[in-house]
Design a protein around this nucleic acid. Structure first.
Lengths: 210, 210
DNA sequence: TTTCTTGTGTAACCCTTGTTACTGTAACCG
DNA sequence: CGGTTACAGTAACAAGGGTTACACAAGAAA
């Protein structure tokens, strides 16, 4: 564990802190599609991403859902962080996008490290900043862009996150992430294919413009 | 200044910190409609709200704009905070909604207080949490609600913020805040009036269901 | 092979929202 | 007082996207 931890975080945390993390952190592996946090969960551990990718979703009471953003190595979920500190329930759902390794930190340590390590404080503040920025991005997307632009952007993000130009998704799954219907996605995908931006096959979409 | 500061923040900050704030903070008064921060500004001071209300707006490159949320007494702008720490430019615009008094803190102090005062750390974390929650709310609103619901919600918020059931706004101003057109707002306001939820007059809207 | 299941393509239709254009009217100003 | 400007009401139409329904194809299962 120490090796992976150092690989992902040596630019961010001081040595002593990495050692502490490796001592108290609990390593966890999650499969693609596996839930990490559900809306309404009490959050007792803060997750640091060692490897893989996680997608963060927002749901409303009617079962509608919407993709907020993806997390990658070196990231943590600021919403979770925020819930930990405030002892409130999770406002979001986190689902593994690929094979993912995370390390869970007990919340007691967070308070302690906040006064003890400057690099920890900075990391926490930077995480908040990064997540706020991503939320603004999400807002821009849904407020100012049309569905075809949002779709193309989604495919590019997905290709990047999965490090592969082929996105293995059904149209229905995409529709859920973008909070629209399958028919709309099929329609727009066909349009994007005609424009030469993607290539369609059953269960897979090749993104040509990365 | 000390009196107002204590009135707004005595539940939040310890005495010694309030004293420090009053010593280094710069008091500033802004009129309704006056800009406090513009997108792209370098932020060198962190604002604490003593009195009044501020609206936080997001703009895109095409000049489109969208209301994110309001700030009130005891709040600070986490985006600004985040920009201060990270030395980045502002991603948002802040405009006074009423007569507003703010106190500006030089960023050097923030770092110092973060290690020195636990109440400061908590305040900063809670501010981040509050703002993230509000952003999620904003996302819910634009992703899951229709324009008539958004409009009603906007009017209620506005009435609450201004402590008055009469909202003095032209339809055009509302259209800017909700990122739509004047005609759409006029249409929906008329519908809401027919439903008995509001009462319309020139330059003013009375919100009947608070 | 046939059958069943799942995913995709597409047409037809509807609703919400955005656009253009024009009218009326309150308030202000010379 | 008439003229100007800002604001509001409304009709007619366009566009985006959501809904329903159905056909068809690829794989999986039998």
């Amino acid at each position: 564990m120490l090796a992976k931890l150092e690989e992902a975080y040596h630019f961010i945390f001081e040595k002593a802190l990495i050692k502490e993390i490796s001592e108290v952190g609990i390593l966890k592996h999650v499969e693609p599609g596996e839930k990490i946090i559900e809306i309404g969960d009490y959050v007792k551990m803060m997750p640091l991403l060692l490897e893989g990718a996680v997608k963060i979703m927002r749901d409303d009471k009617d079962g509608d859902e919407l993709l907020l953003y993806f997390l990658e190595r070196g990231d943590t979920c600021a919403m979770t962080l925020s819930c930990c500190m405030g002892q409130t329930r999770s406002e979001i759902r986190a689902v593994a996008e690929r094979d993912t390794t995370i390390i869970m930190i007990p919340i007691e340590k967070m308070e302690e490290w906040t006064s003890k390590y400057k690099s920890w404080r900075n990391y926490v503040f930077e995480s908040y900043h990064a997540r706020l920025t991503e939320m603004l991005d999400t807002i821009d997307t849904i407020a100012f862009m049309n569905m075809d632009e949002r779709l193309m952007r989604y495919l590019k993000d997905k290709a990047k996150i999965n490090q592969h130009e082929i996105v293995n998704n059904t149209h229905q799954q995409i529709a859920y992430d973008l909070h629209t219907s399958r028919v709309v996605i099929s329609r727009l995908l066909k349009k994007l294919e005609l424009e030469g931006k993607i290539k369609l096959q059953r269960n897979s979409i090749e993104v040509l413009q990365l």
